[in-house]
């Protein structure tokens, strides 16, 4: 009788621990995604990666899909690209989860490495114009949170052309 009671207590304890662990994990994932959504919609919208209408408002249906496949030669920066001492045209990339034209095949580790070191999984080094120098200072929680959020957005097929290097003077 005492043994039986102890068994029940044991099962109750195990059940309790398991439930708590599951809830804790779900809570952490939920918290990360929630933080990521907050970052992306209130603080760091990665605005360079979404093209714009002529009145500077964002084209929501191209959210974070980068510069157009056929960028205009002149126009707003996210559409026509940026010019700096290294680039004649620097186009923002597609950071939606599309596997072919976006970052759908990246892992969380790839994403964190790219933002901390500038190195992408396909061996490119991100130009410092993409301010990864500043993003190096992000906390791991915030990097994971942003990644969790980026996995949830609509994948958009849009192959951004290669950026064009500046001519050497």
């Amino acid at each position: 009788m005492i043994l039986k009671a102890n068994c029940r207590r044991l099962f109750a304890a195990i059940g309790f621990t398991l439930c708590s662990a599951v809830i804790a994990a779900a809570q952490t994932d939920g918290e990360l995604l929630q933080r990521g959504r907050y970052i992306a919609t209130a603080i760091q919208g990665c605005a360079c990666h979404t093209r714009e209408r002529s009145d500077s408002t964002k084209e929501k249906e191209w959210y974070l899909a980068g510069a157009p496949e056929q960028p205009p030669t002149v126009g707003l920066f996210p559409n026509a690209g940026w010019t700096n001492p290294r680039w004649k045209k620097l186009y923002a990339r597609n950071i939606t989860p599309d596997p072919e034209t976006g970052i759908g095949k990246w892992t969380e580790a790839d994403f964190i490495r790219a933002l901390k070191t500038g190195l992408t999984p396909d061996g490119r080094i991100l130009d410092p114009f993409m301010p990864w120098g500043a993003f190096q200072g992000l906390t791991d929680t915030d990097l994971k949170a942003l990644w969790a959020y980026l996995r949830t957005i609509e994948p958009i097929k849009n192959k951004v052309p290669d950026s064009i290097r500046a001519e050497r003077k």
Binding site: I39, A134, T139
Partner: peptide, 12 residues
Amino acid sequence: NYLVNHLAECVG
């Protein structure tokens, strides 16, 4: 400081 210099990146 974290928001201005890193997350929101106002500096750019």
